[in-house]
Design a protein around this nucleic acid. Sequence first.
DNA 1: CATGAATGAGCCTTCATTCAT
DNA 2: AATGAATGAAGGCTCATTCAT
Lengths: 188, 188, 188, 188
Amino acid sequence: MTTAPLRKDAARNWERIVAVARDLVAEGTPLQLNDIARRAGMGVGTVYRHFPTAEALLETVAAPGLEALAGHGEQALADDDAGRALAGFLARTVEAQVTDAALAPVTAAPADALPRTTELKRTLRSVGRELLERARDARVVRADLSADDLVPLMCGIAYAAQVHADPAARVETARRYLTALLGGLYVG
Amino acid sequence: MTTAPLRKDAARNWERIVAVARDLVAEGTPLQLNDIARRAGMGVGTVYRHFPTAEALLETVAAPGLEALAGHGEQALADDDAGRALAGFLARTVEAQVTDAALAPVTAAPADALPRTTELKRTLRSVGRELLERARDARVVRADLSADDLVPLMCGIAYAAQVHADPAARVETARRYLTALLGGLYVG
Amino acid sequence: MTTAPLRKDAARNWERIVAVARDLVAEGTPLQLNDIARRAGMGVGTVYRHFPTAEALLETVAAPGLEALAGHGEQALADDDAGRALAGFLARTVEAQVTDAALAPVTAAPADALPRTTELKRTLRSVGRELLERARDARVVRADLSADDLVPLMCGIAYAAQVHADPAARVETARRYLTALLGGLYVG
Amino acid sequence: MTTAPLRKDAARNWERIVAVARDLVAEGTPLQLNDIARRAGMGVGTVYRHFPTAEALLETVAAPGLEALAGHGEQALADDDAGRALAGFLARTVEAQVTDAALAPVTAAPADALPRTTELKRTLRSVGRELLERARDARVVRADLSADDLVPLMCGIAYAAQVHADPAARVETARRYLTALLGGLYVG
DNA sequence: CATGAATGAGCCTTCATTCAT
DNA sequence: AATGAATGAAGGCTCATTCAT
């Protein structure tokens, strides 16, 4: 079941709301539907009609990022090198989390507002699980690592990169942290 | 630097406020000074006199934990085995963050409300730096790891443990994640 | 005066709206035209076209009940026993008010939205007046009771039955109250 | 346990709020705490501090009336003439409901916001029950009338008086209706 | 005729902070 | 020092009604 196609004017508003929200997310401002309505130059009711809660809006902003990740994950499954496939997937995941501020809260949230989000998260988790299992079977990954740990660990790395002060170096920092995690802080 | 001596009743109030705040922090309730005043059975004004902001109070709650960590750090510096010393310090740090809910926000905060907090954080960072340098000199730690990364990484692990659903397993999870980080997810 | 004939599809919509409204009234939900449109599976505009206000819709829902009462009233006028005629009419009136949730508010409202409602209420009042006068002439009813009191008293009884907690016993309660009113609480 | 004595300024505000509310109730305006704050010339917070909900405020407005009724009821219990005692009590009750617009909703409400209200309503019910039982024992009242019917019936009469258009004659109308109810619409 | 998106006033409630007592 | 009443901005949400499509 696809969402019913919107009227042209409604679609314009929808886009506008999401665009405003994207900007706010990027600048770290918490999403407040009243605020968004004002910035988008429309009535609150309009915003509420499109997005019943701030979470729904946030998830909508996050969706493209999640979809891109899922897409990459599917491709990674085609890679013969299980270690490289997993590492690539994790790298993309961390990078996305750091680049797109909408992803982290949505990924970490225990409950979803939109079914689409739940679906995407499920896909990502299952792709992650599959990649992990292959890597484990190929003996390139420690055996005590569970698929349920992947999301927390990626979130943790993204969070760590944020705690580290400099916002400009954030992506770079996240990459380094992922490398460190994969290789281990301790040498041999 | 000692806190200015308080009158006995004022000291009692101070203790009571901190005790109430500790409980609230432990149960995950955000610190609201009004709320605390009510629970502590005193006027808001009194609470504000002792703690001008919620952050100041939170940092006060966090202080003992930070002090304990610093204390452990000092001892670790006496350890001959640089690798063990650093690992022990990091383990304590992560454990503390997960155990004591006041620590994570204070550690991650870019600015401090109390000078005492700044001082403690500086101490911790310098201890960490020292331990790291020794470990690096001993070639047990990767060379590209900077002292500025220690705090973010520990915060990241604590955060990761929180994202992982089960709260009962939180400490255990954090330990596993630290082990993974130290040893690396990837085998050899 | 007949309602202007509607196109078949418009008539279907009209019926559907009234049906939905009837259900809502029955379950005690306040009539909201937006809500009704959604439940009826049509646009708000359509509902507004048929019923400019919620009151108009409510009166439409109430109309059949009012008509039935009026019908009974006309028949009662044919009864030779003036006392029995009046009592029967009042009993029906009270019963209807308690049974059909649309009646009470419409009956008690000082102003009407639809001319049809005004007409029906006028009819009912005049039937009541006639029955009362006959009963008064037959000396079965106290002389100080005016025709203008009948509606209020019936509304009052219905209201009383609603205040009385148990909803299941509502009809029974209303009957008892009417009996009490007719016979008097005080003996002899 | 009495309510803690208020500071002079707080007491002034309390009085002012209740006064404003009383006026609004009298003119039939629904109580809205924001509105009241504006009219009373104070911040919303102040109103909320004193009265957490509109119901609590309404009950506070109603309290004096309920207390007066309870007082009268206690006196009525001293009357030897059981019939007169009950009739007097009922008359006062109806009169009060019609005179004081706060009473009807509070009396009819299934749940109370203030314990004081619950207490008063309980007192009134038990006084009513006692007076009714005495009147029944004295055989001046029909036997099938239960104490649980008194409140509904009085509410019903007050409601009836309100439905009857003319507000000026309201008290007079209510008296007539009570008389009618006591004596019966139908003559012997 | 039908649709349903848009509007925005309006109500509710919370909470950080101040300041008179 | 302590008290706690007062403040009011701020955010949340609903719903009757209009009007472009």
